[in-house]
Every structure is written in C-alpha cells, then in structure tokens.
Amino acid sequence: MLVTQLKPEEEVLPKISGKRLFIFECLGCKELYFPKEEVGKFVDSLKEEITGRAILDYLCNREFVKAYVGEYSKEIEGADLVLVFSCGVGTQVVSSLLESKLVYTGCDTLYLNGFQGLSARNFNCNQCGQCYLNYTAGICPITNCPKGLLNGPCGGTKDGKCEVDPEADCAWVLIYKRLEKLGKLDTLTEILSPRDYSKNITEYLSQKEGVK
C-alpha cells in the first residue's frame, strides 16, 4: 500500500509537451491520502491533446488494467505516450502491459508507517527478517530510531526526544521505560550483533527468481 504525490510540473511538462496523451488516473487504494484533486487540476490545465482518460482504482491489479487497456485500445493507440498518475507499482503494471508504448508517471511515491499491514498506523516494520522486538520490549529500534541503533541510544537524545526529529520520542528512551516497567532492564546489557543484511538479499532474489 503506497501513497503518491504529484511530481513537480517542471519535471513532467518537458516530457509530455506537444505530445498526444492517454491518461491513467488511479484513485489509489481508496481511503488513503492520494492527490486526486491535484491530479484532476493538473490534467485539466494541460494544453496537450488528450486522446482518452481512464480513471480507476487499484491500478496495480493487472486484470483490471487489462480490461481498461482493451476498452481504450484505440485511444491508447492514438496517443504518443501514456501518462500514469499512480504509485510506482501501478506505473510498472501499466508499463508492463504496454511494453512498446512510452509510459510516464506523473507521481512520486512514498509509504507511510503501518503500510506493511493494512493501513496507516503509528507502527512500522522494516521486514528485516530478524525481529529484535524481544530485546526491546516490543518497540522497534529499526524503524523508530532513524539510525536503527541496536545497542542503546546515541548521545543525541534531548529531553527524551530524537536528534533528527525533535518532535519524535527517542525510541531507546521508550524502550528503557518499558523494560523498566517490565522489570527487564537487564535485557539491555546484551550486545546485539549488527543486522544481517544478507537475509534481505537472499530472500529478495529468491522471490524474484520465483516470479520469472
């Protein structure tokens, strides 16, 4: 689950100027922040010829996009390029279905805390494959500490707040407090070895291999 922002105009306009466009607009994963109105305004302001405009939700679903590509085949054929307003996944799906067509995206994509699950939440998980939560009273130091420190806080904490974002609580202060409550401060004395990044790459590549 991802959300998007409109790319700066100066990045998009030179790519599409003078071209005939077909437009795909994703309504996003519904009920998520998605710049629907901004996209609408931007598209309306374009001087380029627009051969067709498909507005749908869940543009990442190949079956749905296929149906739209079929329905709008003439309009797509008549366009010099297909401009997609969606997250990176949606753009890649459209692009993979229209391989010989120029497909551009008008959006930058970002993810929000909690999206690994179902929806925006205050919790986040970096899927590091080696859960440290048992050492940290269930507060994740990988996602809550910008440095992902495993062995206690850096010296940058000020009044319990993070040096990177003074509005955010220092994860390690929170961990300390919760462990104290649990009477398990001794957990902190264990020296955790650095994160094993090979877990990521092995898993990632084998999954990719499975798809090909």
Binding site: C60, C87, V89, T109, Y111, N126, C128, G129, Y197, Y204
Partner: peptide
Amino acid sequence: DSMQSANPTSGVAYHGISLESEKCAGCDQC
C-alpha cells in the same frame, strides 16, 4: 520474523494492493 521483500540498497519494497510481482520502494523520486 518479518520477511523481506526488498534488497538492502533500496530499503523496504512495497507491493501494491494486488498480488502482482511489481514493487515500489516509495523513494519519493520516481
């Protein structure tokens, strides 16, 4: 343990709301 779906260089990879193989790192600079 949570499972990875990205390479360590890109960070975390996010799937869409379908089960397609395409993923996105949400790097905010497409």
